[in-house]
């Protein structure tokens, strides 16, 4: 049967053409194409890997930032707390000091007042004594101006004594 009988001519030309085609395409088509396609694939793979890595790094950095922020917040809170405490302490201290000062002042004032008072009383006493003496002198002078009066007085005194 002709259909299944190989022909020498076709085998010859087919072999020649196919081998030349294989050689030519290998050199000028497949090599450059496959190299380019596979290089591109590699570069895409690399790029994706890099992106992935960068993403992970970013995430790590973000976490770090969060930590830093948290730390800063804690520190800030602590600082505010410390400051408040210090302020309170200062106020308290100054109040104490003020009170002490006040008390000291009051005590001093009291002392001065007492001293003044004592001085005034002493003077008053002296004054009263001298005045009493003067009055007594004047009264005695008056009483003793007449005999009657001297007598009456003597009597009165004698009465007082007898009453005792």
């Amino acid at each position: 049967m002709d259909l299944i009988t190989p022909a020498v001519g076709q085998l010859f030309w087919g072999g020649l053409v196919f081998l030349i085609l294989l050689f030519m395409l290998k050199k000028f088509a497949w090599k450059p194409m496959l190299t380019a396609v596979n290089d591109r694939e590699q570069s895409i793979k690399d790029a994706i890997e890099l992106a992935e890595k960068t993403k992970a790094e970013m995430a790590a950095m973000q976490a770090q930032n969060q930590d830093l922020l948290k730390e800063a917040r804690v520190e800030r809170d602590k600082m505010i707390k410390d400051a408040t405490e210090t302020a309170k302490k200062l106020v308290e201290e100054s109040r104490e000091e003020g009170k002490a000062q006040q008390q000291k002042l009051v005590a001093e004032a009291q002392k001065i007042i007492n001293a003044e008072k004592a001085a005034a009383i002493t003077e008053l006493k002296t004054q009263v004594a001298s005045l009493s003496l003067e009055i007594a002198e004047k009264i005695i002078r008056g009483e003793l101006a007449s005999d009657d009066k001297q007598k009456a007085l003597a009597e009165q005194i004698a009465n007082d004594i007898s009453l005792n």
Binding site: V17, I20, L21, M24, L25
Partner: peptide, 15 residues
């Protein structure tokens, strides 16, 4: 063969 060479060699040039 001609079509293959034309098509694939010109395609390879694009790279």
């Amino acid at each position: 063969a001609g079509v293959l060479m034309f098509v694939f060699i010109s395609a390879a040039k694009k790279y």
